[in-house]
Write a protein that binds this DNA or RNA. Structure first.
Lengths: 215, 215
DNA sequence: GCCTGCCTACCTCTAAAGGGGTAGACCCTG
DNA sequence: CAGGGTCTACCCCTTTAGAGGTAGGCAGGC
């Protein structure tokens, strides 16, 4: 379907046999070229700079540093190429973490081998591919609205937010903080806007996920 | 890669020219067969029963009932086939809603036409496909997992509770569950009483702390 | 049969929430 | 000094929540 460009891949898996199998399969495709292999995360990180692969095929189940953590480090070193996680687990947390780290796909190892090539091409095109059987998990992982904690709340807003998460009404919060209910409303209004949320319920959920203890 | 089975598609778009273009492209593929077209959501809903398509290609930008809403209604009538949303917008809410409703993909209309066939096949295989450029939006939309409890709540109450924790209003919850807002209020009232809580915010917090797992 | 629990739907009512605006006091910085 | 950000407080307004009530349909158990 597409073939003009030759894309470079880095293969990361702690099982040599698995790497062998994947390599053999990919060698039949002349638009895909494996330019390197790594048996663990650390090694993968050192190969990124010299190889600059277009895509990293990353096993998640590795000793010491797993795929998610490797992905995290890859992004931390500003690797902007594609990354495909493949794994045996359907752990919801892993999927969520992977996609938060801008993974381009999350594949289960029990898929049809032929499909892998398909998925690699999709990922190289920038498409997000997620294995069959994971859509339900995805739907579950998708819940509350909040977004990146790149915004900064003022100290007062954090206090109000924590009280919201404590289930308190604006009136009670005002009493606790020694300010009027109206002022509390102002803070609520502002923090909702800053966080891109639409209700105090969403704010409570956001708070529980983002400011555990500290504030 | 795959070709044995002939899959049936329903095409839903309010622009006849767009349908024409897609049909022309798909007619070249002998494993994909368009068995029906609809120019709006209502029409699509009436065609599902008689046609039973394997996949619905659903434009999101339609007057009156948009794609998301159509998808919601499709799922409400227990349509279990694949659904591919395609749209011009990258609205985070739409993507989140779509995937919550078990959409099998969310595609932007500015993609390469040839890729559409690819994506349709992926979706038919159960893969979740999401257009390039949306991975960042996805990463933002991703948040906390759903959760399930052991308490003495009825199934309906658990559904409502989970929606509360998702930040939804009673009206939205009613819409999602296909019941009136008033009935949702009844469920909220009852579950608050059962759990000894005083507001939906407390309920959301309770849900996040106690509901773990699916259901 | 009757009774109970669940789900549904409606009613009325008050309280709470949230969006819009203006505005004064304070502090810090250019 | 002017400007910006914060915190405070109030005004307006609409929408949402939540607590009461009644009630019908429908399942299961007694």
């Amino acid at each position: 379907m597409n073939a003009p460009l030759r894309h470079t891949l880095l293969l990361v898996d702690d099982h040599p046999m698995m790497r062998r199998g994947i390599r053999q399969m990919l060698e039949l495709e002349d638009d895909l070229q494996i330019v390197g292999e790594a048996s663990h995360g650390e090694e993968a990180l050192t190969l990124i700079e010299p190889l600059k692969p277009d895509l990293v095929l990353l096993d998640n189940n590795m000793p010491q540093m797993n795929g998610i953590e490797t992905l995290r480090r890859l992004r931390a070193m500003h690797y902007t190429g594609k990354v495909l996680l493949f794994t045996v687990s359907d752990a919801e947390d892993d999927i969520r973490d992977a996609l938060r780290l801008d993974a381009n796909g999350y594949l289960l190892k029990d898929m049809e081998p032929e499909l892998l090539i398909q998925y690699i091409r999709d990922a190289l095109a920038g498409t997000l591919v997620i294995s069959p059987g994971l859509t339900r998990v995805m739907a579950q992982a998708l819940r509350s609205p909040p977004r990146q904690a790149d915004v900064e709340l003022t100290e007062r807003e954090r206090q109000v937010l924590k009280s919201i998460a404590g289930g308190h009404s604006n009136k009670v919060i005002g009493h606790k903080l020694g300010i009027t209910e109206g002022t509390v409303k102002v803070h609520v209004k502002n923090l909702l806007h800053k966080l891109g949320l639409r209700s105090r319920v969403e704010a409570a959920v956001w708070a529980m996920e983002h400011l555990r203890g500290a504030g």
